[in-house]
Design a protein around this nucleic acid. Structure first.
Lengths: 208, 208
DNA sequence: ACCTGAACACCGTTCAAGT
DNA sequence: ACCTGAACACCGTTCAAGT
């Protein structure tokens, strides 16, 4: 066939198709993506740097709807909370993609922009330079940890014979469907409160 | 060859070999495990339920050194903190295994036991039944989120042109090698403080 | 520049056959 | 019960060949 007049493929289309597959089946395959797009497997490799490249496109698709603008409004702690929640929501919309995004480094410009703003926010709030990345990391871990939890199987702990772990089985039975949300709320609230305290005690130390 | 007098394979050996491979290369393959054990690929399938079964053996190896006994000593919050730290340390010893353990449910008896104790601890501390699993989940997310962070690439955010994200680049430069530990300490401290508050306010509500 | 067709080395898994 | 050898359908990736 050779080169067509109009390109059959582009990165956005590849990313969208891969995400569709992940949402539907929990995984994707380069040949599967090609099949859906009515194209040869090898063609995909002309637009993307291997399977890892497709994963990066997946990330771009997942965060496509995110608006970094929310980080510019209100006090730093409120801005961070709103941001963390929106980030978690974006991942929650594609739970089965999460695990694939966690082990490869972020190169997506759109995502870098978000973290740039978070870092600025913390600096302006008065946190010491050396404290900034630990806080960013903590927040990141909370969001991703929770997102991963939402993507996990219905019951993460399969109690074989109930007699082996009666209390765990009991606690599971007493648990509502909002377990994951409650856990996130709890963790985020504790984290932000702790950060506020850090800032306050640092302020007192500076005054002294 | 047929059946040998002494079995050539057992689950422990398979798990240990798979973990070696993951530690060294970041992944494992059933044929690779078989090769290391000087055995045919198909033989492995007589001892384990597919690749997923090997992953469960991986989990057992990772948590093999963990002692649930630490959960029985001291006040609930101290016990939980010690437990969370030891759990994180166990994962940290095998960072590249972490991602594989996060998406499959836990069946390993040894791990279930730990959670059984954590649940008991929280119940005895006075938390409401419906609050127990959210707290366990939160703690679990913090440990796993942090463990995953330790297993992530050196730099999680690759800033292309530094001019695109000057503050992020700057903050990264100001960051020490203990970034991951600091983030964990921060998050865990905040979480436990928040839980203590929950318990205290619940106590006050009960008194009223 | 972009797509095809064919190739390569490799996987996970199954199964009959042997002792 | 446990191991082998061979098979199956499938991957990720590369590359010469075409327009």
């Amino acid at each position: 066939m050779g080169r067509p007049k109009k390109a059959l493929l582009d990165r956005t289309r590849i990313g969208r198709t891969a995400l569709e597959l992940v949402d539907e089946t929990g995984d994707f395959t380069v040949p599967e993506v090609a099949r859906r797009l009515g194209v040869q497997t090898a063609s995909v490799y002309h637009h993307v740097e291997g399977r890892a490249g497709v994963i990066e496109l997946l990330r771009e698709q997942v965060v496509a709807g995110l608006d970094a603008g929310t980080l510019a409004t209100g006090p730093w702690d409120v801005a961070l909370e709103v941001w963390a929640r929106s980030y978690r929501a974006a991942f929650a919309a594609h739970p089965r993609a999460i695990a694939m995004l966690m082990t490869s480094p972020v190169r997506a410009v759109r995502v870098i922009e978000h973290y740039e703003r978070v870092v600025s926010l913390l600096g302006e709030a008065g946190f010491a330079p050396a404290a900034v990345m630990p806080i960013v990391t903590g927040l990141d871990n909370i969001v991703l940890g929770s997102a991963l939890d939402m993507s996990a199987p219905e019951v993460m702990w399969i109690v074989g014979e109930e007699s082996r772990a009666p209390r765990l089985a009991e606690a599971q039975a007493a648990t509502g469907p909002d377990r994951a949300d409650l856990a996130f709320d709890l963790t985020l609230a504790g984290f932000l409160a702790h950060c506020r305290e850090l800032l306050a005690s640092k302020g007192r130390a500076a005054e002294a």
